[in-house]
Design a protein around this nucleic acid. Sequence first.
DNA 1: GGCCGGCTCCGTGCCGCCACATAGGGGAAA
DNA 2: TTTCCCCTATGTGGCGGCACGGAGCCGGCC
Lengths: 209, 209
Amino acid sequence: MEASRVKLMLVDDHPLVRDGLRLRLATVPGFEIIAEADDGVAALAALERQEPDVVLMDIAMPGANGIELVKKLHELYPQVQVIMLTMHDQPQYVVEAFRQGARGYVLKDSPAQEIVAAIHAVMAGKRYYSAGVADALAAGATPAPLLTQREQEVLALIAEGRSSKEIASSLNLSVRTVETHRLNIKRKCELEGSSALVKFAVERKWTGL
Amino acid sequence: MEASRVKLMLVDDHPLVRDGLRLRLATVPGFEIIAEADDGVAALAALERQEPDVVLMDIAMPGANGIELVKKLHELYPQVQVIMLTMHDQPQYVVEAFRQGARGYVLKDSPAQEIVAAIHAVMAGKRYYSAGVADALAAGATPAPLLTQREQEVLALIAEGRSSKEIASSLNLSVRTVETHRLNIKRKCELEGSSALVKFAVERKWTGL
DNA sequence: GGCCGGCTCCGTGCCGCCACATAGGGGAAA
DNA sequence: TTTCCCCTATGTGGCGGCACGGAGCCGGCC
């Protein structure tokens, strides 16, 4: 634990949530918010100017998503601790976030002091899971789906609600080829049924890939 | 505009967002937050004890959703002004919210002072639309999807990625009946294809119905 | 060069979904 | 009471997705 104040950076696309975080954390002695950003690009730009101790980051943001951002951030600034904030406790993202270097994971619908606890934990070199996230980690042993380029393209169009025939003409492929990709995606992600595939695709898109 | 302070009530299931609202609004002279609630049931209970001038309400909440809550609230307490808060500017909900008696509609990703402006507007007897919502109103000539109880139940299970057969056994219905409901939902919501239906259902669930 | 994995395409039978239509029972409003 | 909507269920023909198989092409790696 440093003698100086803990320097924080907030990354969330909702001003209201940033307000909540800022005004809440400003009352905590020893905390100092040195930067805010509303997306990944702004976050990386802010990091070039000043380096925080802890980054509080929403997992679902327009443009680059939280998972990719935490990955880049961990590559460029490995000493910066990242805490993910999220509305939903989806196992696959929790696991992926930690795999990419996140140190904490807090649900937005948990008590506000959990965030303070999370910051203290990661500053002490520990990890922090919000209540309920531990369950997600236990259940979600799935390390990574790892889809190929083409499969991701197909999945993106599935998330648009398109049929195999429409996807085929969009990508200039045979319908049978698209169906093969669908089948492979379902196998890799352990999905059963076409609707489960669509659900998976839509949720993936909503959380930013 | 009253001589006394404006009494506010906050309804949102995210403590963080309530923090942001409370701490932001507390600094505004003439505003007083008399109650908070994290869902529709708690909101109605709080209203029995003390009546606010304005209710700030999230549209997406677990349990009863914001649209139904504003309807009930407007029936029981017609003099209470309701301002809807939301993450997403989906036309159908904007239109439906106003139809059910809401007086204002503010996006959570708009500047925080918009909320103050909205409160002043509705207290002056005016309506308030966040920037961008006007576009949604113009574009969304769709009056209301208006799904029946049973259709909403079916839709909720579709959002889980379930097949018609699974839904049928869950609700103790014939598979053909579930298919009839599917068909009716698609007709009402002008959807084409099973995947578009699943997409619609999942997105609806993510935005809280 | 040989091997492996990804991308592409195809056949076939099966099952689920789709769109059209019909129809009886029940409850609520006019 | 009559009317209207909702919920329920069913028939039929057609189309689309699913799961199993095989196969050729290409690029990277050993």
